[in-house]
């Protein structure tokens, strides 16, 4: 087991290093006139000496290999480069927004699992029942409808028509922040409010989290519920399930204990892949619900040509994704003895 994890960790380091190289190529090799654009961002008058200053500052006229060295040094130093737009270290900005994205992603993941696993199981047990049909329809919507479309629709229905949510976006409303400030403990608002016993703050945070989490979770619900359904169908026909039934075990126990435990295996593997969706989908979701997350920050960086920020986030996303997959592999290996020593 330890050998397996060590090997996978070594691979991960190699992959992340490769990912950083790719982002370097995107940031420094492809774009033209970077110095000119960054100088334009910094000053109204782009004179040759301003361009020269920016060129020096970002080592743009050094050989690429030297620039690559500076790039790695920046990443290693924990500053992740300096943004030519805000003038701040990129790491400061990203770490400010990252907890918000993680909170949204975690909520979406929990919601997706909580909804899709029972739905998949029921759909498998009662094939072609209305639950099965509904889950099929939901899966189709989740897979095929653009996230921003769903997001705008949710805002309209649950905020404007039904009035179930206080705001169509944002993390906390101003009145909550003014009256029941959420004390900073972990940086995750829902968690912090719960830990400090801040009831109104907690409710408000969950209320704001609901719509973005739903729109981010929908494609995952689609994926996970169909996955659970098909693996459940497979498992329900296995010998040990039949044996359990023959022994007179109650049907609900057969389904929810025996069968589900084994049927969840493929679902666990998909969870790692879901991280990819959560990182991608959070970009659009955060824009719609003006969620102050790192995805929205990345879009702002892309449109203002803030390449240190763009590459730092892209590399970070690759790291997160790889870590999530590593974690999945470990969990999988732990659960399934056949893979343990592979």
């Amino acid at each position: 087991m330890i050998g397996f994890v060590a090997r996978r960790l070594a691979t991960l380091v190699a992959v992340v290093f490769g990912a950083m190289t790719v982002t370097f190529v995107i940031a420094r090799v492809i774009p033209q006139n970077v110095a000119q654009i960054w100088a334009g961002v910094q000053g109204f008058k782009v004179t040759p000496d301003v361009i020269a200053l920016v060129t020096r500052q970002y080592h743009l006229n050094e050989p690429l290999i030297v620039q690559y060295g500076y790039y790695l040094r920046d990443l290693a130093s924990g500053r992740w480069g300096t943004s030519p737009v805000t003038g701040r270290p990129v790491a400061v900005d990203i770490l400010m927004y990252l907890p918000n994205t993680m909170e949204l992603a975690a909520a979406a993941l929990l919601l997706a699992v909580a909804v899709s696993v029972p739905m998949g199981v029921v759909a498998a047990r009662a094939r072609n029942s209305w639950v099965d049909q509904a889950s099929r329809a939901l899966a189709l919507i989740g897979v095929a409808a653009p996230t921003f479309w769903i997001g705008l629709l949710l805002q309209f229905v649950f905020y404007y028509w039904l009035g179930w949510v206080r705001d169509p976006g944002g993390m906390l409303s101003d009145s909550t922040l003014a009256l029941y400030p959420v004390r900073h403990v972990t940086g995750f608002v829902v968690l912090d409010a719960a830990l400090t016993g801040n009831g109104p703050g907690l409710l408000d945070a969950i209320n704001h989290l609901a719509l973005p989490a739903i729109s981010l979770a929908l494609p995952l619900v689609a994926l996970l519920s169909r996955m659970t359904r098909s693996s459940m169908l497979e498992v329900l026909n296995q010998d040990y399930v039949r044996t359990a039934r023959a022994k007179g075990m109650p049907e609900w126990r057969v389904t929810w204990r025996h069968a589900l435990r084994n049927a969840l295996m493929p679902t666990v593997t998909v969870l790692g892949l879901s991280t990819g969706w959560l990182l991608t989908g959070s970009v659009v979701t955060e824009l719609i619900f003006y969620w102050p997350g790192v995805g929205r920050y990345a879009v702002g960086a892309v449109t203002s040509f803030d390449f240190p920020a763009v590459t730092a986030y892209t590399a970070l996303a690759a790291l997160i994704f790889s870590l999530a997959n590593l974690l999945t592999d470990i969990v999988y290996a732990y659960v399934d003895p056949r893979i343990r020593f592979a």
């Binding site: 009662a126 179930w164 206080r166 909550t176 209320n207 609901a210």
Partner: peptide
């Protein structure tokens, strides 16, 4: 399948409740 679908209704209600908490919070707060 009949028992199951009743259970399923119950479970759906529970899941709905969890979802509803998020919305209900709106009214409460």
């Amino acid at each position: 399948s009949a028992t199951l679908s009743r259970r399923d209704v119950l479970r759906r209600a529970l899941a709905g409740g969890a979802l509803g908490m998020g919305f209900g919070a709106g009214w409460l707060s």
